[in-house]
Structures are given as structure tokens and as C-alpha cells.
Amino acid sequence: MDKVSFRKKQIDIMDEFMKSDQAQKEINDIYLQLFEDAGFIAAQSVGITMSIENEIPTFPIIKKCWNLGKNVYIPKTFNDYSMTFVQYTPDTELETSTFGVREPKNYKDNNLNPPELIITPGLAFSEDQKARLGFGAGYYDRYLSQYPTKTIALALSRQYYLKTQWPVYVLDKSVDQIISVSKDK
């Protein structure tokens, strides 16, 4: 299946799954696994997006980072498909991007490229290639090509595949680690 078709199918799957009680149980399990992960614990700077509908909510992760004294950075995207990570605090003023993602309004100061750890968003992830299927604009692939750093993906059961089900191209950047629900579920 081509990427565009698989992406559309995956969006439909996630739209339906996120309405279920099972989704919330899995989200809580993934939070616990992330908060106990050695790479997460060690990172003093964490890059993460502000979640949109039908994604694992990221604000509980952001709040945990703040409680642990970590610096949180969120992406600011640009028309040339580049992005930078800007420090996010409770006082950061946000605006909504053309993709519907909340981003920092002011981005000239407090940039960090790259944060020690980036929690990468995506629609699907595969164990065999550590492949990530993003939303189609290529921001993270471009960014990680320029700024390699440790990456963790958080995958609900409907996002996690043992074998890659979509084409992976040379410019597609894999993730270092995937945290998902227990493999025996």
C-alpha cells in the first residue's frame, strides 16, 4: 500500500480507536513506561509537540517534565518545511499553525537544536525498521537529518506494527525507540 493510502487508513483507525476505553488504558500504560525509561529520566531537555485530537495527549508528559525540573521544547514550523524547538513554559504564548498544532508565537529566543530527547509524533511505527509514518509534511525527517538526537516514539496498539506496512524512503528517519503497550496484549 502506498504511503498516502496507508496514512488515510491509519487516520481512520485512530479516529475510531481514540473513542474507546481501551485507548485510555493504553495511554496510561505508555505514560508509566515513558516515565520509567532511562533515556527519559536522564534527559534534561525534552522536545515534544502539543498534541492534537486523536493523538496521545502530551500535556501530562509536559507537566511531568516540568515537575522533574526538565526543560521542555516544542516545535515552531515554517513555510519552508523547517522547524526549530523553542522552550515551552506555562507563560509561553501559543498560536495555531496551518496544520492545527499549537506552537510558540515568539520563537526568536530560547531555541535549542536539538533537545537531548525528542518524543516524535506519528501515525504508525514499526518494530522491524523502527520506521515512523508521519503526517506527510516531512518536518521531523528534515529536522532529524540536520539535528540527529535521541528519539522515542509512543505507539498505541493500533499504531504499532511488527513489520513495516508502508513504503520507507531514504529521507525517512527512523526512531531510536518505540514505547508501546505490552507485546503480549
Score class of each variant (00 low, 15 high):
130 K>F: 13
87 Q>W: 11
139 Y>M: 04
28 N>H: 11
159 Q>M: 05
164 T>W: 09
143 Y>P: 04
116 E>L: 01
44 Q>Y: 09
86 V>R: 01
145 S>Y: 03
116 E>D: 15
184 D>W: 04
117 L>D: 05
114 P>E: 12
18 M>A: 08
51 S>P: 01
179 I>M: 13
93 E>R: 09
75 P>E: 10
158 R>D: 10
56 I>R: 08
9 K>G: 01
68 L>E: 15
127 E>K: 06
144 L>I: 11
155 A>R: 05
176 D>R: 07
144 L>R: 03
159 Q>N: 03
131 A>V: 13
81 Y>W: 04
13 I>K: 09
84 T>E: 11
97 S>R: 02
165 Q>D: 04
146 Q>E: 14
19 K>H: 10
110 N>P: 01
142 R>H: 01
70 K>L: 12
91 D>Q: 07
35 F>L: 15
144 L>P: 00
72 V>M: 14
73 Y>W: 09
66 W>N: 10
37 D>N: 15
46 V>H: 03
47 G>V: 07
98 T>R: 05
168 V>D: 08
42 A>I: 13
40 F>P: 14
168 V>N: 08
97 S>L: 07
77 T>H: 02
151 T>M: 04
156 L>M: 11
15 D>Y: 02
140 Y>F: 03
155 A>E: 04
179 I>S: 13
164 T>V: 00
24 Q>K: 08
175 V>L: 09
147 Y>R: 11
161 Y>M: 07
83 M>R: 05
4 V>F: 08
1 M>I: 15
115 P>C: 07
26 E>R: 01
116 E>W: 06
45 S>F: 07
137 A>W: 00
148 P>S: 06
59 F>C: 02
143 Y>H: 00
119 I>T: 15
12 D>H: 08
17 F>K: 06
140 Y>H: 06
49 T>C: 01
181 V>K: 03
59 F>P: 01
128 D>H: 02
114 P>S: 03
120 T>Q: 10
109 D>N: 07
11 I>S: 02
73 Y>I: 05
159 Q>R: 07
110 N>F: 12
